[in-house]
Amino acid sequence: SSQSQGISSSSTSTMPNSSQSSHSSSGTLSSLETVSTQELYSIPEDQEPEDQEPEEPTPAPWARLWALQDGFANLECVNDNYWFGRDKSCEYCFDEPLLKRTDKYRTYSKKHFRIFREVGPKNSYIAYIEDHSGNGTFVNTELVGKGKRRPLNNNSEIALSLSRNKVFVFFDLTVDDQSVYPKALRDEYIMSKTLGSGACGEVKLAFERKTCKKVAIKIISKRKFAIGSAREADPALNVETEIEILKKLNHPCIIKIKNFFDAEDYYIVLELMEGGELFDKVVGNKRLKEATCKLYFYQMLLAVQYLHENGIIHRDLKPENVLLSSQEEDCLIKITDFGHSKILGETSLMRTLCGTPTYLAPEVLVSVGTAGYNRAVDCWSLGVILFICLSGYPPFSEHRTQVSLKDQITSGKYNFIPEVWAEVSEKALDLVKKLLVVDPKARFTTEEALRHPWLQDEDMKRKFQDLLSEENESTALPQVLAQPSTSRKRPREGEAEGAETTKRPAVCAAVL
């Protein structure tokens, strides 16, 4: 046999249950609850290399294929790409003598399909299967379609040439079993990697079954959420508030809700932002270029202005709740996480202390139980975000031990490091100062900020419009641009040419 590394010779191994799959997660993409704000000051410096380099560890398999027929071997997927077919160049070659004697062998292509993985959001991997055969590759009886790919989820059954000719079961060793999710959700989405997690739940990458488009699904544990919100009269209202707010909003710089499922837990389906959180971008770069800050901040102002015009105060604006559309420097941003939002009543007064301390406005800290506050709290938070983006460190921090965090904020005395700000323009610093004003009545509004000289930049605004146009074009394009080929190089076993392929839609398939 010419099988590559990772293939075992026996096809009769006992199949494990899916609970053996491991679970991976990374930083929070968007969480309903406010958790302790991640610290920006503690960015690790590059460490000196050791005298002796450690040995390379043996790579762990990321997936496993269990053979369902004699003549096929099990495969431990270690590499990122595997070709399957009769050709000797394939990493998994159909060359077992037992297999060659079967009637089905002649229906398999020289290069029938490939399984591979690509880097997705949060640097996690996504597994795909890609059909290159004349007679078809099927996943859970659905045709992939020649020249098309679809994501592979845990426990997928792979069939060759005929939908009933099941050859492998695919085990993704990095994700959960699909069966743990409600059927209504599974009918519409293929669940994938964990993108982030918080005290009350997690955010998962998923794929729409009909279109193969990526989405983010925010899962909120009702049990954990009820415990964490025990002081509230009705904890469920917080989730329902977020859903109702998101459904009503329609702005290019605000995250869109696509679906909602109320089962044992809450499942909020949101558009996916491939670039992750602004927080991670700031930490990764230490600070952002001023031109990049301007492009992002302009969009934040437009989003918050839209919220305020619609009578909504976000109340928890922070870099973790600003998501980026891509890994590119120039990209769209979207505001997310409306769990603490407040729809303005007639009095415009709110007395609930919520939000993240580092970003809270002075009037929030001094008015607990005594007075109210209004939309100006969001403008203060925007000032803190702009400060961080321009400088790479927070204006107020618990680690300045000589003054408490509350006193720093209520006095408006931010930590100004001259040598850092020497590289920032006077106009940018002036806008920061106009937003970090203790008196909410004297603080800049979103309208005033948008009129500030720093943002009178036609090149930046043109760039934003171009990015918007690109997004609109990409969302308007159909996901499947061509029909699967019906040509046949070899006959199917026991049926006429093209008899099955043309009847089945290529579900969740995307043209390369």
Rank of each mutant, 00 (worst) to 15 (best):
E309M: 00
S474G: 00
W380V: 10
E500I: 08
I255M: 07
L317E: 01
V377Q: 02
P418H: 08
Y373L: 01
I255C: 14
Q479G: 02
L349K: 04
L295Q: 09
F261P: 05
K318V: 02
H251M: 10
E346C: 15
P395K: 01
D262Y: 13
V304M: 10
V269T: 08
L324I: 07
V432Q: 00
E363Y: 01
L382Q: 01
P505H: 06
V403W: 03
N415Q: 00
I335N: 03
I268C: 13
V364A: 10
E497D: 08
F416H: 13
E497R: 15
K413R: 11
E274Q: 09
C354K: 02
I333M: 13
T445A: 13
D457R: 04
D439Y: 08
L481V: 14
E346H: 15
M300F: 03
L477F: 01
R351P: 02
E329I: 12
G276M: 09
S341Y: 02
N310W: 00
W380E: 00
V377L: 04
A291R: 10
K318C: 00
E495W: 03
V368Y: 09
L431R: 03
A303T: 13
Q305L: 08
R451I: 11
V377E: 01
E290G: 08
R462T: 12
A291N: 13
L450Q: 06
I312K: 00
E274S: 13
L431P: 02
G372A: 08
K463W: 04
N415S: 05
L435P: 10
I417R: 01
D280L: 14
R462W: 12
I254W: 09
C331L: 08
I257L: 10
D457S: 12
E346D: 10
V507E: 15
M273C: 07
T292E: 07
L481D: 02
K434M: 12
D466Y: 11
K256Y: 12
G311I: 02
K441W: 11
L270H: 01
D280W: 14
G275Q: 00
S411R: 08
D337T: 03
D265G: 09
S469P: 03
Q408W: 14
H340T: 01
I245K: 00
E320K: 02
Y373T: 00
I385V: 07
Q465V: 01
L512V: 06
K441M: 13
R375G: 10
Y296K: 05
P484W: 01
V437L: 10
T445R: 00
G339D: 11
K256V: 07
H251L: 10
A291K: 07
Y296F: 14
K434Y: 14
S367H: 15
S397F: 12
A422S: 10
E329S: 09
K289C: 07
R287F: 13
A303W: 00
V403L: 05
I312P: 01
E346R: 10
F261R: 05
G383H: 05
V269L: 15
K334F: 00
A376N: 15
L344Q: 04
K294M: 15
V403C: 00
A510P: 07
L288Y: 01
G372C: 03
E426L: 10
E328L: 05
T370R: 09
P505F: 15
L390H: 02
H314E: 00
E277G: 04
T336E: 00
K463D: 03
C508E: 13
A496Q: 11
K334C: 11
L349C: 10
I243N: 08
V368F: 12
E309S: 07
D466L: 00
K489H: 09
L365R: 01
I343A: 11
Y267S: 05
L270F: 15
V322R: 05
Q299K: 05
P252A: 06
P357L: 14
C331N: 07
E271C: 14
I268M: 13
E264Q: 04
G345W: 15
Y267V: 05
T352N: 01
D316V: 02
E470P: 06
N415R: 05
L302R: 08
F338M: 05
N321M: 03
G284H: 09
C253P: 04
N321Y: 03
C379A: 05
N285A: 08
I245G: 15
K433E: 12
E426G: 11
V366P: 15
I333T: 08
F416L: 00
N374A: 08
L324A: 09
C379K: 02
E495V: 09
C508D: 11
G412A: 06
K318P: 00
K334G: 09
Q465S: 03
I409R: 01
R462L: 13
E274V: 12
L349V: 07
V282P: 03
V432F: 06
L450A: 10
E363V: 03
H314T: 02
E398A: 02
A263N: 09
L429G: 10
D265E: 09
L512G: 00
R315T: 04
E495K: 09
L435W: 07
C379L: 08
V283I: 06
C379W: 13
S404T: 04
A496K: 10
V432E: 01
I245F: 06
Y296H: 14
S341R: 01
E470T: 14
D378R: 00
Y298V: 13
E346S: 08
I255F: 04
H314M: 00
F396I: 13
D280A: 14
H314Y: 06
L246N: 00
F297W: 14
D280V: 12
R504T: 12
G369P: 14
F387T: 01
K281L: 09
E458I: 12
T292C: 01
N374W: 04
G369L: 15
P252K: 07
S425K: 09
R504P: 02
A291E: 06
K433G: 11
N259F: 13
N374P: 03
G498N: 14
N374Y: 08
H308V: 03
M460Y: 00
D280G: 07
A449K: 03
P394Q: 09
A510D: 06
V322A: 13
C253F: 06
T502C: 03
E363W: 10
C293K: 00
Y306C: 06
L344Y: 15
W380M: 00
W380P: 01
